[in-house]
Each structure stands twice: as C-alpha cells, then as structure tokens.
Amino acid sequence: MLEELYRDLRDELIRWCTTMTQDRSTAEDLVQEAFWKAINNEAMLQTMTPPQRRAWLYQVVKNLFIDRTRHAAYEAVMEELPETAGDELPSEYDSLLSQDLLRRLPEDERVLFVLRYIEGYNSTELGKLFSLSPGAVRAKLFSARQHLKKELED
C-alpha cells in the first residue's frame, strides 16, 4: 500500500510543494518527511480510502511546511535578540523582569514576551512573524505573564 502511495503521489506532492516553497530541494525534503510519517502511521492509513490517504499526505506536507516556516522565523528572531535583556528594559521593569526571571520562561513565551514588551511589537505583528493568530500570541503572552507572576510569588 505504501509503495503504491509513493509511486502515485510522490511527484505530484513534490510539484505542489515546490510551488509552496519555491525550492525543489526543500519540497523533496518535505515530501520525504511526509512519507516517513506515512510509514509510522501505516496502520491508520490502511483504514482510509485512497482519496483520504491522498488528503492526509497533502495535509502532512502542508503542516511540515508551516512548522519549518515557523521554526525559521523563530530562529531568525532568536539571532536578533539581545544577549542580555536586562540592559534594555525600561526602568519600571528592572526589578520585575530580571534576566533570571526571563530565563525561567519557556523559550517560545520568552521570545514573544521580549518582542512584545521590550521591543514593542504588537500581537498582530508577532502573529505574522511566527505564523500564529493574534489570539494565539495573546494566549502565549498571558501564559508568560502567569509564569512570571508565579515566579515572583515563590
């Protein structure tokens, strides 16, 4: 079943993915990853009809592309963040947001927190940067504030 799926859909998926990525090599990597996922989910795929398998593979490739895009954006932002956030904090935040507190935040929350409250980005801008909805950004920022609040209480 997997061999047939590979034979029938590989080239089609690569063409579609090349359109998304604008790079054939990246497209081939994404399609290969998708087929690895198919191998790991063979039992589930066998319960599906051929059109469902095709749709599943397209969705997997799309999700892998989104994950890579988010990761690349995240890496780019991480390279631009200052090594010591404490030096750039407004004075009213000095005692509240020490480097030690920021280090205790989960990495994704820390990046968003620094970009929002120190660099001045808004939720919409951060959402575009990380391919997240503004609501998801606000939820992560809320979680970061809760983590900081808990750290301050301890």
Rank of each mutant, 00 (worst) to 15 (best):
S133V: 01
L64D: 04
P134V: 08
V114Y: 05
D67V: 08
A85E: 11
K128V: 02
L132M: 15
G86N: 09
P90I: 04
I66S: 05
S131Y: 09
A85S: 14
E119F: 03
L101Y: 04
Q99I: 04
Y117F: 15
I66W: 06
E109I: 00
E88N: 10
P106Y: 05
I118T: 01
S95M: 13
R104F: 07
V111T: 15
E109T: 03
Q99P: 03
E125V: 01
L112C: 13
H71G: 00
V61C: 15
I66M: 09
R70D: 04
F65P: 08
Y121P: 00
E80P: 00
L101G: 06
F65R: 14
P90R: 03
R110M: 08
E79W: 05
A76T: 12
L89C: 08
E125M: 04
A76P: 02
H71F: 03
L97P: 00
T124C: 05
Y121G: 00
R116T: 00
L102R: 07
M78G: 06
L115K: 10
L96G: 01
L112S: 12
L129P: 00
E109R: 10
R116S: 03
V61G: 07
V114A: 01
L97R: 00
D94N: 14
S98I: 08
L102W: 09
N122G: 00
T69G: 01
E80V: 04
Y74R: 11
